[in-house]
Design a protein around this nucleic acid. Structure first.
Length: 609
DNA sequence: GGTACCACTTAGGATGGCAGCA
DNA sequence: TGCTGCCATCCTAAGTGGTACC
């Protein structure tokens, strides 16, 4: 503990006699990971927690207290004048059936409701909620008219939008009160923000891509479905009146506060901490430390997988080629999925023959592999990659006598791959390569694209370009914003306007110079200076606008946020900001600064990934 | 080695607040 | 003051990877 080294636990600095809190509260860093100063402040409790953490492997906390999750409001029946129409006839539905019908009505203008799978799933599940009588009466979705309901909800939305400032303020305050009450927990005596304290409301399942379960009913979650996790000696959260929890447990080896099983896919859902919490933050830091460790080993690993390409055993060859793709292209591992349960998406190990095309020559390059498949979230991955001839020949071999729908790497899976990687470096899995390659790319690009003499705007464009290179590598795409074309046109107009102003200013400067040459007075000299300053200012403004436009254009379908939040070691960005005098607020917004408080506090400008 | 289950991270889209502008 | 468009935040789906069990 010193002015330069914060306490490992509470992140306080010693300044004179006093302690100052500097952002994130750092806790229980595992001793086997180097690189974090092991200073502890004078608070004995921190020393104790630190020692306990070291002694109890797998233990995530000592005490955990919270209020339990917050439930969505009960269903509010429709007013009597809002009707559901079947086959031209108005019908008053039972409460349960009506509620499910409103879910569909609210989505009427969404593309989802035009899909037959969605319609069929919805209709089947809806019928389950109907009374016997309703089921007999309502047998075709095409005869259902939800438009009155849809109109009603649209009006409600408009009403909400049109609320007065005061009414909105009341809602905001109520929301703040809820967040204050339910949005925080006490973990080892520290107040921590919860990530998602609300139970998911009922509705229709919206899977991504061609999901076979789209449109199915997501049922209302009751307290009787919820498992609470908290410490034994804490105040157990109270279930809502008239209800009880499914179970209350005290498992200190997990980080979640509450969980339930959702009915559509049978998955567990959790209430967990916010990324700004010490538990999440430290895990994040460890993730980047593992990726940095890979940096030291990667050349050996690369040499080894290249050796594998020549192995007599097909399984080893497939392993070598799969690892090459994971490393070179930052592909996801590609776990096996249950057929028919989810959208048909793949990663590296689950690639099928139909997902690649081999070209002996394409676009003037030799041995090109064309990838075309749907990855996570059904985002299309398309890439034409020149590969080494041995990889190319191996791929040919793997595809021999196979049908398009057969697995390309039929002898391996992610478990096998990860076991192998773990032998090369403890803690290494396929996913680490994505973190490692993303962070390495950012570091390289920043080093390449930034110079000290750049303006702030130029530096920011460089940063975004480096970030973009990573997003492209990781295939982080987004739908082009709906207003993109319009906003581009607006920017073009602004630029044209600014150019015009600049032309005028230049003309005026010329005139002023002419006049000064003639008169040579103090007044004319000052005028020239004034006009020169105006031209300079306008030139800067124009350049700024042009840079902004370039940035936005290049970003049309690229999502920068995902890599920034999940793959880029924040210390790279913090060090870059410090080195090039860029305010950290220009790179990270408030949430991101909270998440990366640990990096903002600890990173010096000479940090390299 | 296969499978089921669990815990956690990673992901894009929806929503809503607010700054900037006419 | 009202409108518009951008961006932060929220939401929850969809991945990865570990472990227990057979």
């Amino acid at each position: 503990m010193s002015p330069n080294n914060p306490c490992k636990y509470c992140k306080r600095y010693l300044v004179g006699k006093y302690l100052t809190i500097a952002g994130w509260e750092m806790a229980n860093s595992k001793p086997q990971i180097d690189g974090f100063a092991s200073y502890l402040c004078e608070n004995r409790a921190h020393n104790q927690v630190w020692e306990e953490d070291n002694a109890n492997n797998g233990k995530k906390w000592s005490t955990l207290e919270h209020k339990g999750p917050f439930f969505p409001p009960e269903y509010e029946p429709l007013p009597s004048n809002v009707c559901f129409v079947y086959n031209g006839k108005s019908i008053k539905l039972s409460l349960a059936a009506e509620e499910v019908a409103t879910f569909y009505a609210k989505m009427l203008d969404h593309e989802y409701t035009t899909k037959s799978v969605f319609q069929e799933n919805f209709f089947n599940d809806w019928r389950e909620e109907m009374t016997e009588e309703e089921r007999e009466q309502i047998n075709k979705l095409s005869k259902c008219d939800f438009s009155h309901m849809a109109k009603y909800f649209l009006e409600k939305t408009e009403e909400k939008k049109a609320m007065t400032k005061e009414q909105k303020q009341v809602l905001k305050e109520e929301n703040n009160r809820l967040t204050e009450e339910y949005g925080f927990c006490l973990l080892d005596g520290h107040k921590e923000k919860i990530g998602n304290f609300r139970v998911e409301p009922p509705g229709l399942f919206r899977g991504r891509g061609e999901h076979p379960k789209m449109g199915k009913l997501k049922k209302r979650i009751l307290p009787e479905d919820i498992t609470i996790n908290c410490s034994k000696d804490s105040k157990i959260p109270e279930a809502p009146k008239g209800h009880r929890w499914r179970k209350v447990q005290h498992d200190d080896t997990v980080t979640w506060l509450a969980s339930w099983v959702e009915n559509v896919q049978g998955n567990l859902k959790y209430i967990m901490l916010n990324p700004s919490s010490k538990l999440k933050g430290e895990k994040d830091w460890q993730k980047y430390e593992v990726a940095r460790k890979l940096k030291l080993k990667v050349e050996t690993i690369r040499r080894l997988y290249r050796e594998d390409w020549k192995n007599r055993e097909m399984k080893i060859r497939q392993r070598g080629v799969a690892l090459y793709f994971i490393d070179k292209l930052a592909l996801r591992a590609g776990n096996e999925k249950e057929e028919g349960e989810t959208a048909d998406t793949v990663g590296c190990c689950s690639l099928r023959v139909e997902h690649i095309t081999l070209h002996e020559e394409k676009g003037g390059q030799e041995f090109v592999v064309e990838f075309d498949f749907l990855g996570k979230d059904s985002i299309r991955y398309y890439n034409e990659v020149p590969v080494e001839s041995r990889v190319f020949r191996n791929l040919k071999l793997f595809m021999e006598n196979k049908d398009p729908e057969d697995d390309l790497f039929d002898r391996i899976n992610t478990i096998y791959l990860n076991k192998h990687l773990n032998q090369s470096m403890p803690g290494l899995t396929a996913k680490v390569f994505r973190t490692f390659n993303a962070s390495t790319t950012l570091q390289d690009q920043l080093n390449k694209l930034t110079t000290a003499d750049m303006t702030l705007e130029e530096k920011l464009l460089s940063y975004n370009r480096a970030n973009r290179a990573v997003a492209i590598l990781c295939n982080h795409q987004r739908a082009a914003p709906k207003t993109f074309e319009k906003s581009m046109q607006n920017m073009l107009d602004k630029i044209a306007q600014k150019q015009q102003q600049l032309d005028v200013a230049k003309m005026e400067l010329k005139e002023a110079k002419k006049e000064h040459k003639k008169a040579g007075t103090e007044r004319t000299r000052k005028l020239v200076e004034k006009k020169e300053a105006a031209v300079k200012r306008l030139e800067e403004q124009l350049k700024k606008l042009q840079l902004q436009m370039t940035d936005r254009e290049e970003n049309k379908v690229i999502a920068l946020g995902t890599s920034k939040l999940n793959y880029l070691d924040p210390r790279i960005s913090v060090a870059w900001c410090k080195k090039f005098n860029v305010p950290i607020e220009k790179i990270y917004n408030k949430t991101q600064r909270d998440k990366f408080a640990w990096a903002i506090d600890m990173t010096e400008e000479d940090f390299q990934f």
